[in-house]
Nucleic acid binder design. Structure first.
Lengths: 234, 234
DNA sequence: ATATTTGTTAACGTTAGGTTAAACTACACA
DNA sequence: TGTGTAGTTTAACCTAACGTTAACAAATAT
């Protein structure tokens, strides 16, 4: 197995700093894609599978948080590191809410960044079981394309799923016939585990059940106090 | 389901700061053990299962890094957060080398600490989903799946078990044909051994007997004053 | 004989989950 | 500057699931 370079999406509007940082990371064996603003960042994100995103917070058009949220809608797992000029408490908290993996204040030491990147990528590698790149699922007579967020039933017009519907169904599908712990969905999709996110999840379960009613071999069962189970009866 | 408080080991030599931080964390629903130096910290670490360690870097006797290394030797997984007076680059790198999960410079904002703690503990929780295979039991003609809380008999529709039923049957199964002491079940499942929990357990034994009636090779016997015995007659 | 332990059923209070609808939120368009 | 629209959260109401306790019967020990 040959060593695969890790792919980094770097979104940084300051051209000088961006280029310097890109070169530095490239020298250190990362494959860097550089975007100059949030818009461009999102376009490039959609076209590629990245192992890590480094986002500047302060950017014209689309700031780092907004971009992060969009990225999260497409991919709940990819690690994100924020770069920010000064550490404002609100910023830090906001960052963690959208699922930041780390936070660096400019100016920062480049070696520290490298170290953090390494730690985070490794962490994700052990965490990610089979899930990351899989996006086609067969669920009874349904087909889920979680990249396009389509749920299609036999010949019928595919149902368009919202980001949350899609992520939840995908997570259930990854655990077919097995328990999908409530806590797992809440931490992976909602990034917070409290009464309200939990109720929100229940609402989405109801929505998914409605979609899946078409095929009565397929059902989502609850295991009281534990989580849900997507079962396919043969 | 009862809420289990997360256990924190806080090692901080400054008595004032240590107590303030301990109180703050306690108020926020953590169970905090406070050690005043590295030595004491390691002793306490060995005696308990902690969900997270917060270590001051600068301490007499044994600094935070040395302590972290010792902790890592015993437990490669427990998350560690370092507290340090000023961000010296070498320190940060050293911290990441011993496997720090995060780093905070004093003075830091307490809300940020809380947020980081939450994020880190959740992260670890999802990592540890890869459970052991110790949840399938054969009991006569029954099959107990204690992960999905199913008790199935031959071709029949599986019986759904409540959490307590499941835990109790599992514990009995772990001691098949042998005594399962009353006290063991009470401390392991009910976490308290008194008249009422004991009566509650009797109620559950009755419920289990009802389920197990289907197979008359299987029975739960009482050993007066001692406990119960799940026997399988061949 | 009588005190203690266990068997069993039913009632009760609490919490988790199912479902629908209303209220936000962020953006898109005009 | 509103007006719509999709996505999501929050509220509300209801049912189901769970665990504890009480009450009484039966078994067992001393």
């Amino acid at each position: 197995m040959e060593e695969q370079l890790k792919k980094i999406l770097l979104v940084e509007d300051d051209p000088n700093f961006g280029i310097v940082l890109k070169d530095y990371l490239t020298m250190n064996d990362y494959e860097v894609t550089h975007a100059k603003n949030g818009m461009e960042g999102f376009e490039k994100f959609k076209k590629n599978d990245f192992d890590l995103c480094i986002l500047d917070v302060m950017m014209p058009y689309k700031d780092g948080f907004t971009l992060a949220k969009e990225i999260r809608e497409k991919n709940a797992d990819v690690p994100i590191i924020f770069l920010t000029a000064k550490a404002m408490k609100e910023d830090v908290l906001k960052g963690y809410k959208v699922g930041a993996d780390d936070y660096l204040n400019k100016p920062f030491d480049s070696e520290v960044l490298l170290m953090k990147m390494k730690a985070i990528i490794q962490r994700k590698a052990t965490e990610t079981v089979a899930d990351s790149n899989e996006f086609m699922f067969t669920i009874g007579d349904f087909e889920l394309n979680s990249k396009l967020r389509f749920l299609s039933y036999k010949g019928q017009e595919p149902e368009k799923l919202s980001p949350k519907e899609n992520q939840l169904l995908r997570l259930l599908a990854l655990h077919v016939n097995d328990l999908m712990p409530r806590e797992l969905a809440l931490t992976k999709i909602w990034r917070d585990d409290n009464y309200f996110t939990s109720r929100s999840m229940d609402v989405y379960i109801a929505k998914l059940r409605k979609y899946l009613k078409l095929d009565d071999k397929v059902e989502i069962l609850n295991i009281h106090g534990e989580g849900f189970r997507l079962v396919i009866n043969e």
